[in-house]
């Protein structure tokens, strides 16, 4: 009868862990499910029941000057950050692969350091650095800072792809007379492309989400969406912020979906 008591206990544990898991999933999506509908409210009250439905907060988000400037700045900075960080990160991952194991360990640690060092330290350090160069409030400073935050994601994603990549293909191509550049674009690039894609998407998301460094080094005119939301949340939270948050969530879902598709393609 010992066998059945084991299964009983295990079954209880399984049921318990399943119930707990469902509760955790609920906790994870609850704020989205509860708060997003409030952005369609016809009044500025942020609770239920909704008095009526309207698009007015979305209209404000897309038409008010402050928000329009924030949308433009966010897209501009994130767009350029993705280009710079994807190029630098991919090159770094390719280079890392060619180093000896010890050097590789040290460099890999240094390359992802911006993810592990508390962001406030990076922000304050960059604030003094760019101030000494007179670059506070410039787009160059903002894009360079965001590149620092975003590139580790590219390095990690591309490195993961490269680890799975069969290097004999490169030698095969070279033995058939293909030059290094052509080999890269026709052999290496296609097989690391999914990694490169998810790295770039992560870099874009990281730049769109970046707030702390922007608070320190951007000029008052360089409002980004997170910065605009931050000042709004601090003063008085109103439905335009929830509309902005909803739009940002939709963008995140889109980025996430593309990344999942890219990884699916990689796996198959």
């Amino acid at each position: 009868m010992r066998g059945s008591s084991i299964t009983m206990l295990e079954r209880c544990a399984l049921v318990l862990s399943r119930v707990l898991s469902y509760l955790v999933f609920l906790f994870l999506v609850l704020p989205f499910v509860v708060v997003i509908p409030l952005s369609f409210s016809s009044t500025s009250m942020l609770n239920y029941p909704l008095p009526g439905l309207s698009w007015r907060w979305y209209e404000r988000f897309f038409t008010l000057d402050a928000w329009q400037a924030a949308i433009f700045n966010s897209l501009y900075v994130a767009g350029l950050t993705v280009v710079v960080s994807t190029v630098l990160g991919t090159l770094a991952a390719l280079g890392l692969q060619r180093c000896g194991p010890r050097m590789q360990k040290i460099l890999a640690l240094a390359f992802v350091a911006p993810m592990m060092v508390p962001v406030v330290l990076t922000a304050v350090g960059l604030f003094f650095f760019f101030a000494s160069l007179g670059m506070i409030g410039s787009y160059a400073a903002l894009i360079l800072s965001h590149t620092i935050i975003a590139t580790p994601f590219v390095v990690i994603a591309v490195s993961a792809s490269l680890a799975k990549f069969d290097r004999t293909l490169v030698r095969a191509a070279q033995s058939l007379g293909s030059g290094p550049v052509r080999t890269f674009f026709s052999v290496t690039m296609p097989s690391i492309f999914p990694g490169l894609m998810s790295g770039a998407l992560f870099a874009f998301a990281a730049s769109l989400d970046e707030l702390i460094i922007t608070l320190f080094i951007a000029s008052p005119a360089q409002r980004t969406i997170p910065r605009q939301m931050f000042s709004g949340v601090r003063e008085n939270i109103e439905p335009t912020i929830i509309a902005a948050a909803t739009v940002m969530t939709i963008v995140s879902v889109a980025l996430m979906s593309v990344s999942i598709l890219a990884q699916k393609r990689d796996a198959s």
Binding site: V29, L211, V233, T249, S252, V253
Partner: peptide, 15 residues
Amino acid sequence: ILLPFWTSLLVRTSA
């Protein structure tokens, strides 16, 4: 799990 993982920290905090 991935939805909150990808969503902006500020979005989740304001929610």
